[in-house]
Design a protein around this nucleic acid. Sequence first.
DNA 1: CTTCATGCAAATAATTTGCAGTAAG
DNA 2: CTTACTGCAAATTATTTGCATGAAG
Lengths: 140, 140
Amino acid sequence: MTDYAELLKKSSLKATFQRMNILSVVDKYGHMSVDDIYAEVVKVYPSLSLATVYKNIILMVEKGVLVEVPIVGKKSKYELAKEDHIHLVCTECGAVEDKMCLEKTDALFHHLSEEEHFSLNRRQVNLYGVCQKCQMEAAS
Amino acid sequence: MTDYAELLKKSSLKATFQRMNILSVVDKYGHMSVDDIYAEVVKVYPSLSLATVYKNIILMVEKGVLVEVPIVGKKSKYELAKEDHIHLVCTECGAVEDKMCLEKTDALFHHLSEEEHFSLNRRQVNLYGVCQKCQMEAAS
DNA sequence: CTTCATGCAAATAATTTGCAGTAAG
DNA sequence: CTTACTGCAAATTATTTGCATGAAG
């Protein structure tokens, strides 16, 4: 995933420097809040406005380029849209790790939805706990 | 679940009229935002302050009496703490339905966590789609 | 009584908006 | 060229705080 210009064009959005860089940092860091994104991009583009970040995140979520990841007790983070997966959220360090597991959860969620005659569009799974790194640090 | 006074006492919180009513409306409606809660409780207690609702929600979440349910594109809702379950979120009408299914998801989530050496504490599953009621209305 | 909770008003934080100037296609 | 995008500043909305009063145990 490196051709952000192409990605934007497909969504009928102009490929501005600001947008390219928003996508780039989100791609690089995986999951970022609005403020995280602003803080990173402003480093390479000092005249960036926070309002621009807000406007673009809203737009790119609408267009399906970005996905919102709401997190208990924090502000939402955003990630690039990609194949369904779950999030392992560390309550110690705040890190969010993706775990691809479509094949394992897909059937289950469809089954549960059908039981309720619910027409399923999108799933969103967060598991909260302590990541391996923080467990090791706590043990020392 | 009707003895809210008992529930509060166990969490070392005073059983005020405000708190009892917050718990009562959340219990009755299932999932409510801060504003929803305020709007309901102020009906029976007109001098209620929104600040009190905020303070109490924060407190009761800390004490484990309430649970935050973050929802894509909206403000978080809150529900009474209870056995793990998933949420079916209707993107048409906004309704959130609980579906108890611990026995079906528990093993899977533990398995996925172990693969990453992740110490699992809490899970949070939202399925987004269209509820039966809205599907029928759309068809007519 | 004593401590904790409430309501109010003010402070702060988060998000959105309007608009004149700029850049992308 | 033309339309869409940006940055700014102001407006709005959301949340938090401090403090004097009031209620719970």
